[in-house]
């Protein structure tokens, strides 16, 4: 299935939290400010509904997304109010992909864990949590994974300030 068909199917199934989609488009020649949008399409999903949405994606025969390929976040800009939580799904049966995006407000960076649906998400969520400061509620193992336990700050946020030293070791 291509993206339109997937989106139509998701809509027909009444997927929980489905909040629209975004597709690449050419630059609007009228609008000078518009940069257009290249790349891959994605669906927008309300962050609270993510587990239910993924459950549908996994269990629906026509969608058949067996594998969660990636889960990560994006901090689009320091002044932006939301973080994006981006999930890549892959269906081996139907050989199609789906990109899912959820907005996580920086003010309350919380998201429900999707590890019960896809076990693969567990480590990705751990990484995401330490890098962006998103709390995954219900996560079974909320330790840091790549950074030391006592690391201060969330390095992949745009407003992250590099530390001058770590445990007495100069980082400059």
């Amino acid at each position: 299935m291509d993206f339109q068909a997937l989106y139509a199917h998701l809509q027909a199934q009444g997927a929980a939290g489905l909040g629209g989609c975004d597709e690449p488009r050419a630059k609007d020649p009228e609008d000078k400010q518009d940069k257009g949008r290249a790349g891959d399409p994605f669906v927008l999903v309300a962050v609270e509904q993510l587990p239910a949405f993924l459950q549908l994606c996994r269990d629906d025969e026509a969608l058949g997304f067996e594998v969660l390929i990636d889960l990560s976040a994006v901090d689009p800009a320091a002044e932006d109010e939301d973080l994006w939580l981006v999930i890549q799904l892959l269906s081996l049966r139907h050989r199609h992909r789906l990109m899912i995006k959820s907005m996580v407000p920086k003010a309350t960076p919380c998201a429900p864990t999707v590890a019960p649906v896809y076990r693969a998400a567990q480590w990705h969520e751990r990484e995401c949590a330490e890098m962006f400061g998103i709390t995954f509620e219900g996560h079974s193992d909320p330790r840091h994974i790549l950074l030391p336990e006592d690391w201060v700050g969330y390095p992949l946020r745009k407003d992250y300030v590099f530390p001058k030293e770590y445990r007495g070791v100069s980082c400059e």
Binding site: P24, K27, K35, G36, R37, A38, G39, D40, F42, I69, D70, V74, Q88, L90, R97, M99
Partner: peptide
């Protein structure tokens, strides 16, 4: 150009995205 894309390729160890 502005936009976002995900590309996965078959690395010797699996999908490198």
């Amino acid at each position: 150009p502005a936009g976002e894309a995900y590309v996965g390729i078959e690395n010797p160890r699996g999908e490198l995205g």
